[in-house]
Amino acid sequence: MTPRLTMTVNGKAREIALDDPRVTLLDLLRDRLGLTGAKKGCDRGQCGACTVLVDGRRVNACLTLAVGLDGADVLTVEGLAQGGALHPVQEAFIAHDGFQCGFCTPGQIMSAVALIAEGEAGDDPERIREGMSGNLCRCGAHRGIVDAVLDAQRRMAGDAQGRMGKDGERAA
């Protein structure tokens, strides 16, 4: 039996024929839809490099079976930019050097987009660190990452004090 699924991926409706129920969302995105932004780091839910949004919530794509996602709305890092304009979180990662090698970055960015939408961390750097703890960065760019999330959340909240730039406000 070949299950057929309908999914929206980055705003586009997709019909997917799955020949094997073992395919994870991560493998579907990377190997079958050509969306290689989400990364396969540990493949066991421990590193967060595969983070994408399903129906607006951040999840680990490596521990999600594609076959269970009939009707789902999936957003990956490739779907964040609008036209030519980067998403504020993407801009903030660049402005604050929120990466080094870049492997974990798509997962970090998707996780940060969701964290800001969850609205529970606010502009408390400790809450942001806690809220981002499911995304490991082996280069150790966490300081830039926290600064980027802080800056993006302030800008998105329309906070007049929010500003971009390498010397954006540091955690108190």
Binding site: G45, T64, S111, L115, S133
Partner: peptide, 9 residues
Amino acid sequence: GASGQLRNM
């Protein structure tokens, strides 16, 4: 427990 992603799942 776990992470924001895992708790969503």
